[in-house]
């Protein structure tokens, strides 16, 4: 940062303005992260002996690996559901009048406007043994005994998908809105039907939005502690809860730290796969 007023150029202002946020991140993000790393590199709970034993323990323990695996899988399932359900909504948004657009945006944003705890309990009411779905199906005579919806993978995926939907839909709406509507017409006038237009033109050009939406949804879904634990119940264990148990209940801070670091790296790996995929497709940054 230039101190002499004469040599001050525009870029030095930018750095100066970013300083408060940089400081904030340094104190509240980078420092704790380093502390976490430091803690994870101890072999005993008291934190006296250095070593990579916690990492070895995690990576050789089938139970820990299965928790990691099911968490990453859960993220993939939620992301897929959000993409399949969110794309038509975003597509519809670009094709209706301004009044309906307001309605759609409101519906999309609604999950963000209610507390996550309230939303999750609502899903318990819907999915429970005596819940709305089971009660309806039973009164219609479609089933005799209540279906097990709560405390299942299916239940968790559905509840998470609803909660994370805005993170998928909003980037998609933005990306689709950036596509010149004349491209649709051009494709059509060249003899292409709506499906060809969708797969050859709309989908490739909306890839930046798809990538952004998937990244956000994925990251949010695998770290959603409250929804995962309340809907998943005791039998289903995912990384955030596993971490919490190790840290809070068992007071095994070094192992909990190692879990965090491994989880972080796994998430970063998945996210970078998304980004690389996006950059490889030629639609990225186009239009």
């Amino acid at each position: 940062m230039g101190t002499a007023p004469a040599s001050r150029d525009v870029t030095s202002y930018g750095m100066g303005l970013a300083a408060p946020l940089a400081l904030f991140f340094l104190v509240f993000f980078v420092a704790p992260l380093l502390q976490l790393l430091w803690l994870s590199l101890h072999n005993d709970t008291a934190g006296l002996h250095w070593g990579v034993g916690q990492y070895l323990h995690f990576l050789t323990d089938p139970f820990s690996l299965s928790v990691l695996g099911s968490t990453l899988l859960l993220g993939a399932e939620v992301t897929a559901v959000c993409l399949v359900l969110g794309f038509p909504i975003a597509w519809l948004y670009q094709r209706v009048g301004p009044r309906l657009q307001t309605v759609i945006i409101l519906i999309v944003l609604l999950p963000l406007l209610t507390s996550v705890v309230v939303r999750t309990f609502a899903w318990i009411v819907i999915l429970g043994r005596q819940g709305i779905i089971n009660a309806t199906l039973q009164s219609l005579g479609i089933i005799d005994t209540p279906l097990k919806l709560l405390y299942t993978q299916f239940g968790v995926v559905i509840a998470l998908a609803q909660v994370q939907m805005p993170l998928m839909t909003l980037p998609l709406i933005t990306a689709l809105g950036r596509i010149d509507p004349n491209l649709d017409d051009a494709s059509c006038s060249l003899g292409a039907g709506s499906w060809r237009t969708f797969f050859r033109i709309v989908l490739p050009l909306s890839l930046p939005g798809v990538i952004a939406g998937c990244t956000l949804t994925y990251a949010a879904a695998i770290t959603a502690f409250i929804t995962q634990s309340l809907i998943g119940g005791g039998q289903m264990l995912f990384m955030p809860m596993y971490l919490y148990q190790q840290a809070s209940t068992l007071q095994n801070w070094p192992f909990a730290s190692a879990i965090s670091i491994i989880f972080l790296l796994a998430v970063l790996a998945v996210v970078s796969v998304f980004t690389t995929l996006g950059r490889m497709s030629r639609g990225y940054g186009g239009a």
Binding site: N182, L183, D185, A186, S189, G191, P204, S281, G286
Partner: peptide
Amino acid sequence: LPPNRRAVGIVFQNYALFPH
């Protein structure tokens, strides 16, 4: 007939080439 069955070629003011 929908546009894709009219065999009418159209050149748009902004060209509307497919950017990708």
